[in-house]
Design a binder for these strands. Structure first.
Lengths: 220, 220
DNA sequence: AGTTAATAACTGACCAGTCAGTTATTAACT
DNA sequence: AGTTAATAACTGACTGGTCAGTTATTAACT
């Protein structure tokens, strides 16, 4: 009546624990918020006792810091690499950034981080500053470069790049946020692919020079 | 050494209390989140003791419900009235909706509600549903009407209206959310007027028919 | 004097963080 | 190979502080 090879408890897996704990914490922090999340629930979700959690993280806030630190930062580098690959085609670059973001961040558990960080930024200014410096600023810089590239190539109009970068990011962030907030209310919510396609449609038509090329205006 | 005409305590102002309490609660819920907000702090901010709060609201959750119920809903009606006023000029209508939203909601304490509702939607599905039905759906409908009006008039291209409505709302919501989250990190954050102007710029250029009119492409 | 708004002291549930004890793994020594 | 000692991962009951919600009392107004 018992499988001795896989005891449910007292397994010793020092290496795997931290990542399993931060994954569990991310999921619960995103869903409930930092204050409303019980560490006992985090531990249970990671298949471990509360005491074990404290072997790896000194406090609830330390756990939060770890979640944010190891979260999006590694993925950003991949995004920045796109710049080199598509340097000669700004419209294609923009498309790759947007759909790449969805594939690597938005549609993964990391997609909860925007909601989490927005909710907790005022309570944890240090962590917010880190996320701002290491994620937000870098994504903005990447997008700004894409826009400036397009302007230099004469594909895009002259626009307020600083403002447009933030504006263009908004629909992406809101898509991710939505999935972790009102998605349940929004029965038959819109398909992400369709939403992103429409986003790209608005952005490209909004940025392109008014008379540049012939093909334009596609009906849905 | 004391002003007997204005005692700081034991003032009897039954009528004014509820609104003062919900205003205090809105501010603190937005800043800290529901769970991390202490009712003692809410009461103190409203110049009242915790016991008094319970004379007017049965529980912390009731207080939250009241905050959301009396929050944005009344302002929505004003927005919907714009439709009649600017029915014949869709671009102008869009501009009025966007800047009206900023003036009546985004730049006021109500501007915190998007952050608050996003953070708490999963914890309070009922309240989320109410806000979704009474605020989100109605704002979307207003914007959708504006777009369809523009298409009918031949000013706007044929676009995926359902998607575009959500996309267009995103930069507005993010502007409000930003002010209550990362604004502190973002020293010298962008001016809201400039941001909204750029938003309208992208949207109108993105929606307009490619060859419709002569004047286009303004440099910042 | 009676009524009601407001207060402040109080209670009890909850949860972050601790620690004494348990179990698995490794090492040492036959 | 088998026994035992030592270590390190893990557990869960416990504690102390915090805070939502209650209540006995006080102050204001009629």
């Amino acid at each position: 009546m018992q499988a001795p090879d896989t005891p449910l408890t007292h397994q010793r897996r020092k290496d795997a624990r931290p990542a399993e704990l931060t994954a569990a914490a991310l999921a619960l922090f995103v869903e409930r918020g930092f204050a409303a999340t019980r560490l006992e629930d985090v531990a249970a979700r990671a298949g471990v006792s509360k005491g074990t959690l404290y072997l790896y993280f000194g406090s609830k806030e330390e756990l939060f810091k770890a979640v944010i630190r190891e979260g999006i930062v590694p993925v950003i580098e991949i995004g920045e690499a796109l710049l080199e690959t598509y340097r000669d085609d700004p419209e294609h670059l923009l498309r790759e950034i947007i759909f790449g973001w969805w594939k690597m961040i938005g549609s993964t558990p990391l997609g909860g981080i925007p909601k989490l960080m927005i909710a907790e930024a005022a309570n944890f200014p240090e962590i917010a500053q880190f996320h701002y410096d290491e994620v937000i600023v870098r994504i903005r810089r990447l997008l700004a470069t894409a826009l400036e590239l397009g302007q230099a190539k004469g594909v895009f109009r002259q626009v307020d790049v600083v403002a447009q970068v933030q504006i263009i990011l908004s629909p992406l962030l809101m898509l991710a946020i939505w999935g972790h907030s009102f998605a349940c209310c929004d029965r038959a919510g819109i398909d992400p692919q369709r939403y992103l396609e429409a986003t790209l449609d608005l952005i490209l038509n909004g940025l392109r020079k008014p008379r540049g090329n012939g093909e334009n205006g596609d009906a849905p």
